[in-house]
């Protein structure tokens, strides 16, 4: 008798999964399969009834497309530079804040602000701050250093550093807060023990604090890397629109343009799939590499 009741309730629990699974299938799995199918065609929604299967042509084209190549290189530079600087800065500030300071909760809230601003608003705000002729930044630089009219967003050499700067402004707080939370959760005993043994501050940080922060460091680097690879769109879109030329074109912008400006849905799907595979590859390699590292 008990068995019977048990098996019945076992079945029931699957029924409860049905709504969630239905949503998941229709919102995620179906579009994913659709885009995979479409990537083998020359489908474009603006042309009615004229599309055909073209095999791997879209995928091959991706490797010969110089704009995709440039965007990819830009993306790599963007990710590596901004995540590294954000991490280092975040760590330094988190260590500075990790002590008994009056008004720490106020400071923490202030640090949260850039993260809470909508990305498009961040882009627009910085577009005016960095404006060559009226920008506040150029005004101060002129007052202090006497250098005039720095073309932040309009020159090849400065456009990429400028968008990296904005990304750092927006996302360093995330690093600070996560690392600070990590630091504050550490027990003090090993640090005190090290101090009694005569370790210097640097040695304490390097050999006691850092290894115990490993997990949190690993998680935030992973989150920021994936974010930077796939979701850095709005700020760049509003700041430079990928320009001048292709100097700040990231892959996310490129794919968006292919899909919703040029309406080459088939090709855009192929590029997205290759990109997805690449991101999966990078992140899994990253995970296994980091896990193997001895701190």
């Amino acid at each position: 008798m008990e068995m019977k009741i048990g098996s019945k309730s076992n079945k029931i629990k699957y029924y409860f999964l049905v709504p969630a699974l239905t949503v998941l299938i229709f919102m995620t799995i179906v579009p994913l399969i659709f885009s995979l199918g479409v990537s083998f065609t020359n489908y474009s929604p603006t042309r009615i009834g004229s599309w055909s299967f073209i095999g791997f042509e879209n995928f091959i084209r991706t490797f010969t497309d110089s704009e995709i190549g440039t965007s990819f290189i830009n993306n790599v530079i963007f990710v590596v530079v901004s995540v590294t600087i954000e991490f280092v800065l975040g760590m330094v500030i988190a260590l500075l804040l990790n002590r008994k300071i009056r008004g720490i909760s106020f400071i923490r809230t202030m640090f949260l602000l850039p993260m809470m601003v909508t990305p498009v608003a961040v882009g627009l705000m910085w577009r005016w701050l960095l404006n060559t002729d009226y920008g506040l930044l150029n005004y101060f630089i002129e007052q202090v250093f006497g250098i005039t009219s720095i073309n932040w967003l309009g020159s090849y050499s400065l456009a990429m550093p400028s968008i990296i700067l904005v990304d750092i402004w927006k996302w360093t707080p995330f690093m600070i807060l996560s690392l600070l939370a990590g630091l504050q959760s550490l027990s003090q005993e090993p640090i005190e023990a090290a101090r009694i043994d005569g370790a210097s501050n640097w040695q304490i940080f390097r050999y006691v604090t850092l290894p115990r922060l490993k997990n949190i460091i690993f998680v935030i680097l992973l989150i920021r890397t994936i974010d930077c690879l796939t979701r850095s769109f709005d700020v760049v879109w509003t700041l430079t629109n990928g320009g001048p030329g292709l100097s700040t074109e990231l892959l996310s912008l490129r794919i968006y343009r292919l899909a919703f400006k040029f309406w080459e849905t088939g090709y855009a799907s192929a590029v997205s799939w290759l990109y997805l595979l690449l991101v999966i590859f990078i992140t899994t390699r990253f995970i296994s590499y980091l896990y193997k590292q001895e701190f």
């Binding site: 404006n131 060559t132 002729d133 009219s149 073309n151 967003l153 309009g154 020159s155």
Partner: peptide, 18 residues
Amino acid sequence: PPGTLTYSWDEVATVYGS
């Protein structure tokens, strides 16, 4: 103006306006 490479129609209207 030096920022011409960052101008589209909106910025031109602002610069002329000033």
